[in-house]
Design a protein around this nucleic acid. Sequence first.
DNA 1: TCCTTTGAGTTCCTTGAGGGAACGCTAACA
DNA 2: TGTTAGCGTTCCCTCAAGGAACTCAAAGGA
Lengths: 150, 150
Amino acid sequence: MQRTDFSRMACSIARTLDVMGEPWSPLILRDIWVGFSRFEQLQADLGISRKVLTERLNHLVEHGVIERRPYDQRPRYEYVLTGKGRELVDVLMVMVAWGDKWLAGEAGPPVLYRHHACGEISHVDLTCAHCGKPMRADDIDLLPGPGAAA
Amino acid sequence: MQRTDFSRMACSIARTLDVMGEPWSPLILRDIWVGFSRFEQLQADLGISRKVLTERLNHLVEHGVIERRPYDQRPRYEYVLTGKGRELVDVLMVMVAWGDKWLAGEAGPPVLYRHHACGEISHVDLTCAHCGKPMRADDIDLLPGPGAAA
DNA sequence: TCCTTTGAGTTCCTTGAGGGAACGCTAACA
DNA sequence: TGTTAGCGTTCCCTCAAGGAACTCAAAGGA
């Protein structure tokens, strides 16, 4: 099915979706983040079609969020997050916080996150990079930026 | 178009994707967030197929992130974010921060965000809800939670 | 009274992406 | 000389996205 190309839009959300917005891509990044690094591991853990997994991995490599590198003399490869990719995990962490709060139900969250700095089970909050106070959907005004469309 | 159903997975990322992971859904939420609230506005601004827009809006309403309500005696409706939906915008704000940093290029970010609390152009940071210190991909340990799969 | 306009979808056809199973390729190892 | 393990390719089928045309309801004008 022909899909619309988001990469040309003058919108950072659309551009980010062009990198990791296709089906399965966030879950592939999650798996690589938590330590599944090889093709067979990813395929088995996710239950994704091998064809689609190949396409997604290539796409993520092309955009520099993961890196493909050999781990053996034999033709064996593993995928690891780049710095760019590790920052993209921020998006996943916020999805976790939202899903834990709104979708986990009676059973509670499937995974807990312990923060190294304080040792507590916690989750992420969004704060202003400038003043450190909370920064949520209603706390900002939008202004046209230098890269705005004509 | 994800033919695989993510909603049953024991993963808050997969469940969140089930709500807003389909193509266009994040951009629809963005538009509603910034003030496009009507069917015609959304269709014109996004250039999305009317059929898909209808499907996505219904899906988002079913999951309680937006609300459909009449704004006229005539059969006219507008879509607005619920509380649940406003919190989902957190995910978009982090996509903005990442896209602005890694994909904006020479031109710079297309949109600037001014924080009400401090009045500065800024972006979001991820901090620990417990101790307030930075909380990024490498700053946490994962533990099985109460809702973990058997 | 009839015609037109507007907003909000709905229908229908075409194309191409995802699912899934089978196949291929390479290098070590028994 | 098989056999195995890891990593993809190829192929076919189904169904979802694109896109244009169509419908419907209510208001406003001629």
